[in-house]
């Protein structure tokens, strides 16, 4: 092969590598730019305050109402429920897997949790409809099982793999000498975990919980199928709710392109993007703190 040709093709390849390297930045910017491009148009019709704090979401009545506080509260309720369930269970499972489980079982447990992460959200939603929703209805004697609670339980499962894997990394990366020092002082294995390891892994646990929240807030299909889709501020966890994500998924198909409804759904996208961006930023800060 001609040396000059080789040099030139290597030059091109290295340029392509550089471009691919920084393309992630471009994509993040593009995503945000397109959300803004389509979403900001809404604010010609509605003020930001009325959008965020408005109580009524009637996108196709005349005149339409684009207040998303009920959707935000829907997301908050479902997310809060899911986090209350998934964080303790997820952290407990992470401790068991990283500190207690015998080596052989550890691999199986980790694969099982990876499997859970892999099950598509629409399948989780489907199983939720057929098993959990009737169960919730009967146990609590409700008129419908399509409630925030059902959504929280299903989403907790979807958040657990994220929480377990990040928290497990945190426990795994604690220097061995902490553990050895505690054990050498006569502490039991459990005292060591409870008094030393959890403290040392704390930033990682926070990061795991944040990423779990991010996963739950962004979840769409399962939540749309299970929570009943009623755009009203819920009074209790047994009420049907509608989340930000489900609203976009359910309504974009019917929204007329270029209508205020269409803009409003993109504006919800902006809200979601900003929330998850902040959550990931916080999680990243905690993960980096752990490394130091």
């Amino acid at each position: 092969m001609n040396i000059k040709f080789r040099r030139f093709s290597e030059f091109l390849i290295e340029k392509a590598i550089f471009l691919s390297g920084i393309i992630s930045i471009l994509f993040v910017v593009l995503i945000f730019a397109f959300l803004l491009k389509e979403g900001l148009a809404l604010f010609k019709y509605v003020s930001v305050k009325d959008f965020i704090f408005g109580a009524e979401w009637y996108p196709i009545s005349e005149p339409p109402k684009f207040g998303i506080i009920s959707l935000i509260m829907g997301s908050v309720w479902v997310t809060a429920g899911a986090i209350i369930i998934s964080v303790p269970i997820g952290i407990a499972a992470a401790i068991y897997i990283s500190e207690i489980a015998p080596r052989k079982i550890r691999g199986i447990l980790k694969s099982g949790i990876e499997m859970l992460a892999a099950i598509p959200s629409v399948v989780i939603g489907f199983i939720g409809i057929t098993t959990l929703v009737p169960l919730v209805k009967n146990v609590f004697g409700l008129s419908t099982g399509l409630t925030a609670l059902s959504g929280s339980i299903m989403l907790a499962f979807m958040a657990i793999p994220t929480i377990v894997s990040i928290a497990e990394d945190a426990f795994y990366s604690i220097p061995k000498r902490y553990k050895e020092a505690a054990l050498a002082l006569g502490a039991t294995h459990w005292q060591t975990i409870w008094r030393v390891l959890i403290k040392a892994a704390f930033p990682g646990i926070v990061a795991a919980s944040m990423l779990g929240i991010g996963r739950v807030i962004g979840e769409t299909m399962a939540v749309m199928m299970i929570t009943g889709n009623v755009a009203k501020i819920p009074n209790s966890i047994f009420d049907p709710v509608r989340t930000l994500t489900a609203t976009i998924a359910a309504e974009m198909g019917e929204a007329v392109r270029g209508s205020d409804h269409y803009f409003a759904l993109f504006a919800i996208g902006i809200v979601l993007f900003v929330i998850t961006f902040l959550i990931n930023l916080i999680a990243d800060i905690y993960i980096n703190r752990e490394l130091k």
Partner: peptide
């Protein structure tokens, strides 16, 4: 990795 999948849909 953290952007919600529905936001990808919008994008």
């Amino acid at each position: 990795a953290g952007v919600p999948s529905i936001v990808y849909g919008l994008f």
